[in-house]
Amino acid sequence: MSKKAEKSPIFLFVSEEKEPLFSKQNRQLVSDPLNDNNPITVQVLGICSALAITVQLKPAVVMTLAVMAVLAFSNVIVSLIRNLIPSRIRIIVQLVVVASLVILVDQVLKAFAYDVSKQLSVFVGLIITNCIVMGRLEAFALGNGPWKSFLDGIGNAAGYGLILIVVAFFRELLGSGKLFGLEVLGHKGVTLAESTGLYALGYENNGFMLFPPMALLTVGILIWIQRSRNRKLIEKE
């Protein structure tokens, strides 16, 4: 966890007093990770999967939903049993919870979206090692009630997914000229005469976008843009 995240106000309250379901603080739990406390661009967690499955939009969206399910429910479960877990063995308990949920998600994907699950291959299983999941359990679910933890899980998974989808959008559009598998820039034929749309003008797909380094660079550019718009994210020296 970065220092910034610990200093952020949302970690300070542990009060259990009654408050409306969607109070300002609760809404912030969801909205904060989308920008100021984004798990990828600010806390730099969960990078590996962001690099691996952002070549196309479809797997990125499915991955987002998978992480969202795992993160939200593991947060709720750990939050419910947080007072029963001896703190010495909490990591292993958390792992058991996360692992069971990941297996569930994996089975559901295999049953209902087999080809996407093939594309995601090991990366569904690797959600278990996604730093965001353990990070949120340790930093939030262990100290907060189930509803707040649920919102926190949804918010962080959404922040993760937002970056994933933006990166995948650019990589699929520029790398293969498609969005969700549809040829939005026109069809590329063997010769110029057989091509339509942009390809008829001599446009070419950027093969570099399909390589993992370009995912890292795209995330880097997003961080650059975010920090130049949001000055408070810049570290003081």
Binding site: E204, N206, G207, F208, M209
Partner: peptide, 10 residues
């Protein structure tokens, strides 16, 4: 290098 990896056929 960018051109080389992005547009190898050219």
């Amino acid at each position: 290098a960018f051109a080389f990896f992005a547009y190898p056929t050219y």
